[in-house]
Simulated scan of single mutants.
Amino acid sequence: MSYYRTFRGFFRIIFSLVYRWQVIGREHIPKEGPVILCANHISLWDPPLLGSGIERMVHFMAKEELFRIPVIGFLITKFGAFPVKRGAGDRAAIRTTLKVLEEGKILGIFPEGTRSKTGEVGEGMPGVAMFALKSQAQVIPVAIIGPYRMFRPIKIVYGKPIDLTALREAKSSGDTLKETTNLIMTHIKALRDHHRS
């Protein structure tokens, strides 16, 4: 955790001085218990931005190739990341993700699965819905409003928890996953559109 605080402090300086960041909605983050932060994805800077905006530690999935790179693998591990095989049903990563939530920690995830080339919010992948429905985590939509340009403001907005009670009580199916994913993406987009100007 000491490494995490050190890196977070470093990134906060970068975001404050270089990008003049604005953090909105910190009060919506529960002080304890499992949380899934669901954000749009526009840059490689998004994971540290998402984690630097709040006080609790955030855990991330990251493609396994990154963990083989000297220094980078060490740094992202200390910053709360764990490996996932892209393009495959990685059962180990799924188990790790659910364990993170079972232990009452925070998971940061980008439902689109890849960075948006246009900056617009795209379609979400069903994985985020699976984690949301299989856990009792509070799901927080997050809007990252860029672009990342030196000395230009960037915003990160943490929204209110999404009510998934009815979907969690419904019979699990492909339609439930799709509906849950669409609901999460709708909240992210609405948050982004509201704070865009």
Rank of each mutant, 00 (worst) to 15 (best):
I156R: 04
F110R: 10
M125V: 13
I109H: 04
S173R: 12
L191C: 04
I144T: 02
T118E: 03
K189R: 11
T114G: 06
T96N: 11
F74S: 12
E179P: 06
G124E: 01
E179C: 14
R5M: 12
G119R: 07
V121Q: 00
V128M: 01
P83N: 04
L37Y: 00
L107P: 02
G127F: 00
I24M: 10
Y4V: 08
E112R: 07
Q136D: 15
I76V: 14
I145R: 04
I188R: 03
I69T: 11
P141R: 03
R91M: 11
D175R: 15
Q136M: 07
A92G: 09
T165D: 05
S43I: 11
R95C: 05
V128H: 00
H28R: 13
S135H: 03
E64R: 08
V100E: 09
I162R: 00
L177C: 04
G113R: 08
L167T: 06
A190V: 06
I69Q: 10
H59Y: 08
A143E: 01
L133K: 09
R91W: 03
I54V: 12
A190R: 15
K171G: 11
I188S: 02
F74H: 13
M150R: 13
L177K: 08
G33S: 10
F15I: 07
P153D: 06
A170C: 13
K31G: 12
D193K: 14
D175P: 05
R20L: 14
E32G: 07
M125F: 12
L17Q: 09
A39K: 04
K117R: 13
R196L: 10
I24L: 14
Q22A: 09
R95I: 08
K117E: 10
P34A: 09
I184V: 08
L167V: 11
T165E: 09
T97F: 01
V121K: 01
F60D: 01
K171M: 11
K105W: 00
P153R: 14
R115N: 10
V84A: 13
I156P: 01
K178D: 08
D163S: 10
G87M: 06
I42M: 05
P70R: 13
F151A: 08
M1E: 13
P34V: 02
F82M: 07
G119P: 05
